[in-house]
Design a protein around this nucleic acid. Structure first.
Length: 694
DNA sequence: GAGTTTGAAACT
DNA sequence: CAGTTTCAAACTC
């Protein structure tokens, strides 16, 4: 699968430019510089790391280097570790020492050089530094730290570098803060931060996640600690308990490997936190007293999130309501990120569970106890009651747990299973097989289900890329741009109750829906486009124009970049979709030419006019429209999720098959926007060139 | 909390 | 692919 992925990019990258510019000195210059650099920084780095893992020569052969993912985790863990070390070492002087390496590390990352080396080095070196560097506990150092940070941040704000520096800064500050107040309810914020981060980073990946983790501090650190525990026991050892939740065995977490496998198989965990902020805050405010409680807070959010999001219904719309959380499509986040993320979350969750139980005194260890035996409700304290209350109060998708009785939690009926997470103690399921103990069974079942429906574990609610762009301008946009992957089939609920997945997901019904009497408040299906458009036509038109302007602007910028490869990002923070473009090759792999991706994702953004064209068609020929819809939507899924691979072999390929130029709306768009073509072709080739394999 | 309704998932 | 059954969440009382 991997190889085919590279082909398209490499072909595009190598053949096209060569043929045209081979002889041109400019071309040589450019190729020397590598187009990637032009696009570089964030996106390239991210992509590179994500891709590089498979290929790059194991310069630093360590048991951990085996997989990129792991190294990524390492990095995350590193940051975590560093943080922890910092935490444990009262000396702020140490911080200075630590900070520098960290920044250096970040810079390295930004430069894309020695990616793996960096990861490995940081993984192991930093902890040492932290360890041995610590001695003088003085707050006086903080200025130094600041200086360093400022220096680093003074770099031109590039996607990666800039944010990284900021991350470091924030992390340090948080660390300092955290020392004073242990139970900073940052966990919630973490999620939102993460979300934002993810938004502005390549949906593609791991790097994003890594950065996210880097961003994590104190309480957030603990968040990662969980992951670390599974991934890097070695380092974990060095980490002082620090009053935080111990890094212990993951309880209800899919082993990372398992998770990877699952995702590799195209399964995704919809674990990003789109939890409703209200609830999070509430939980935090209500229950968190100790560090562990803090974890609980984070966990509660995460926990809530995991299942909630995992419920197919990413609650994107819900999150959308929260202006704080930029809309990220669930799908926009690569499997990697999601993996990591979900893993972390889940892990914490489990940890938390343990912690919780211990904290709540009389509680029994819940770890492997079957839910039926565990009586979760009894074991968990007021927190859970509250959570459940709030849940019942309809506060969101969060905190859902399954209650399966017959499915053994091995079918999509089970929300946990569907979400790609193990059932945990709060679940009320019976005869649950969705536990680490039955990992093999779970995996096998998943495979089976995926074989039947490759998208079975894909997020059900899909938000189009334009919505991302939109989010910046207008976060309050209705979910009109989001769609339920498959659409609902409601007959009696009128799409006004949570029976309706569209409604539950906070998105409007689409032509994909076969619902009857649709009254979905988020957008009705009935001539869905018409209804939605009628209500939004004007503002959408405006938005559309804005988007067009943006795109054009970016195209120009990209052109400039082409011309001046060295001038890249610094001055121009990459718009989200640019990242998409850049990373697309990796996301879509060989599935779609970058152009298609770019335009395809943007298709919905262009949809207004196009839809205007098709509107009449839609009204007359819903089926055709559906097809179009799918072509628009599915590519996004495919492009952005590991499922793409599966899709390639999917028996349903019809549905998922990438839009071919001229065969679909997006295709026409593609052609129409010839400008984009150049951009895409250029930017994509860059990646392969950086890739050591080439 | 028990029972009903609902629609997705699974099955045929 | 369509129809039916199974299932668990959502909902109601």
């Amino acid at each position: 699968m991997d190889k085919p992925q590279k082909n398209p990019t490499s072909q595009i990258g190598t053949s096209t430019p060569k043929s045209k510019f081979e002889d041109s000195p400019v071309f040589n210059y450019i190729s020397n510089l590598s187009p990637i650099e032009s696009v570089k920084s964030i996106s390239t780095a991210q992509t590179f790391s994500s891709l590089s893992f498979t290929s790059p020569p194991p310069v630093f052969t360590s048991p951990h280097v085996n997989s990129h993912r792991e190294s990524r985790f390492f990095r995350c863990h590193n940051s975590v570790d560093r943080a922890k070390h910092l935490d444990s070492l009262d000396g702020s002087a140490i911080k200075e020492e630590v900070v520098i390496p960290v920044i250096e590390d970040l810079n390295k990352e930004a430069s894309l050089e020695d990616e793996e080396e960096t990861s490995v080095e940081t993984s192991y070196e930093l902890p040492q530094i932290l360890k041995f560097g610590s001695q003088t506990p003085e707050d006086s150092d903080s200025p130094c730290t600041e200086d360093v940070v400022i220096e680093a941040s003074s770099d031109p704000p590039r996607g990666d570098g800039g944010s990284s520096s900021e991350d470091v800064k924030m992390g340090l500050q948080k660390m300092l803060d955290v020392r004073e107040e242990k139970d900073t309810p940052d966990c919630g914020r973490l999620i939102s931060d993460a979300t934002e981060l993810l938004v502005f980073r390549s949906p593609n990946d791991s790097e994003a996640f890594r950065c996210l983790v880097d961003k994590i501090s104190s309480s957030e650190r603990r968040f990662c600690a969980g992951v670390k525990s599974t991934k890097r026991p070695k380092i974990t050892e060095d980490i002082p308990a620090n009053g935080s939740c111990k890094e212990n065995e993951p309880l209800a977490v899919l082993p990372n490997e398992s998770v990877f496998n699952l995702h590799r198989g195209g399964m995704r965990r919809r674990c990003l936190d789109f939890e409703m902020p209200g609830k999070r805050k509430k939980d935090i405010a209500d229950d968190q007293q100790s560090v562990c409680d803090n974890n609980v807070a984070g966990e509660s959010s995460s926990r809530c999130v995991v299942p909630g999001i995992g419920l197919h219904l990413n609650a994107v719309a819900m999150s959308a309501k929260d202006s704080n959380i930029n809309l990220i499509h669930d799908y926009s986040i690569s499997g990697e990120i999601q993996k990591s993320f979900s893993g972390s979350i889940t892990l914490i969750h489990s940890q938390d569970t343990v912690q919780e139980t211990s904290d709540q005194a009389e509680n029994e260890p819940v770890e492997e106890i079957p839910k039926a035996l565990a009586f979760p409700e009894l074991n968990l304290g007021s927190l859970k009651k509250k959570m459940r209350k709030s849940e019942q109060a309809g506060e969101g998708e969060s905190c859902k747990r399954c209650n399966c009785k017959k499915s053994k939690c091995l079918k999509l009926y089970c929300e946990c299973f569907a979400a790609g997470v193990y059932c945990i103690e709060p679940c009320s399921c019976i005869d649950c097989f969705n536990k680490p103990i039955h990992e093999e069974t779970v995996l096998a079942t998943r495979k089976q289900i995926e074989s039947r429906n490759p998208l079975a574990f894909a997020p059900k609610v899909i938000r189009s890329a334009d919505s991302i762009m939109e989010a910046g301008d207008d976060a309050s946009k209705t979910p009109a741009s989001a769609r339920h992957k498959r659409g609902c089939n409601c007959k009696k609920s009128n799409c006004l109750k949570k029976y309706c997945e569209c409604y539950q997901g906070g998105v409007g019904c689409s032509m994909n829906c076969r619902c009857e009497g649709c009254k979905n408040v988020f957008g009705r299906k009935e001539g869905s486009l018409l209804v939605i458009m009628e209500s939004k036509l004007e503002e959408d038109q405006e938005t559309y124009e804005k988007r067009i302007a943006k795109i054009q602007h970016n195209i120009e910028v990209s052109k400039e970049v082409e011309q001046n490869p060295s001038s890249d990002q610094p001055s121009t923070p990459l718009p989200p979709y640019r990242h998409l473009v850049v990373h697309q090759p990796f996301l879509s792999k060989n599935r779609l030419p970058p152009t298609q991706f770019f335009l395809g994702t943007g298709s919905s953004s262009f949809r207004k006019p196009d839809s205007g064209l098709t509107q009449s068609q839609n009204e007359k020929k819903p089926l055709e429209t559906v097809a179009e819809d799918k072509t628009e939507i599915m590519p996004e899924i495919l492009l952005n999720s590991p499922i793409a691979n599966i899709k390639a072999i999917s028996p349903n390929s019809k549905r998922v098959s990438p839009p071919q130029p001229g065969s679909s709306e997006s295709g026409s768009i593609l052609r129409r926007r010839g400008n984009g073509r150049k951009l895409i072709l250029r930017s994509i080739p860059a990646f392969p060139s950086l890739n050591p394999n080439q």
